[in-house]
């Protein structure tokens, strides 16, 4: 608790980068494929060099994992991944040109880490692909494949919000979970049809 930036130098930086360090060591060991102390030590040395020479900004708001929420997220994600793969595969084979839509969804989570997980997962679940994100206003622009009518669009919007809720219940803090209910669809987005 010194509070002086100069004093907390390398140690502070390393502590902030700890998840990244662990991940790099794990990757290094997986690449070698066999377990040995030499691999572990060289991995740690390499990870330290990488994080010191090429530092990344620290992730604000460390992740916590709620086991129940995480299992629910993971289960639904795997099912979604398989169905979306099959769906798009079928879409490529059937005749006809698919109609699509671009929608904006008002999210409720204000955390870089959670938004990243949401955006990553969204591109792999049925229908949706992230085009753009307004970080200030928490608006996510999503491209939706094979929509037939406006009911489909609303269904897709609801499923994006459901995904966000699952991610927050899996990794979010208590505050963020409460925020899910506090602001249900804050701002209405203007819709324009071409």
């Amino acid at each position: 608790m010194t509070g002086v930036p100069v004093v907390r130098g390398l140690g502070h930086q390393v502590r902030h980068q700890l998840p990244l360090l662990v991940w790099l060591v794990v990757v290094w060991n997986l690449l070698w494929g066999t377990w040995s102390w030499a691999n572990l030590l060289s991995g740690i040395a390499l990870a330290l060099v990488v994080t010191v020479v090429l530092p990344l900004p620290p992730v604000v708001g460390a992740a916590r994992v709620h086991p129940g929420g995480f299992l629910a997220f993971l289960g639904v994600f795997v099912v979604d991944l398989v169905t979306s793969g099959a769906q798009v595969a079928w879409q490529t084979l059937r005749p006809g040109v698919p109609r699509s839509a671009i929608i904006r969804v008002q999210l409720r989570t204000d955390s870089d880490l959670l938004l990243t997980v949401v955006a990553e997962a969204l591109s792999l679940v049925p229908g949706s692909l992230v085009i753009d994100m307004d970080r200030e206003r928490l608006l996510l622009a999503v491209h939706v494949l094979h929509v037939h009518d406006l009911a489909d669009v609303e269904r897709q919007r609801a499923s994006v919000l459901a995904l966000e809720a699952r991610v927050v219940r899996a990794f979010g803090s208590a505050d963020e979970i409460a925020a899910l209910d506090r602001r249900p669809s804050a701002a209405a987005t203007g819709r324009r049809t071409p």
Partner: peptide, 28 residues
Amino acid sequence: PVSAHMISRVAYRRRHVRRDLLLVDELR
């Protein structure tokens, strides 16, 4: 997902979108 997102974003901004096939475009 990251590479797909980057490509889609550039494509949308450079207007490589078949607008006649879009049911709704709320980003416009």
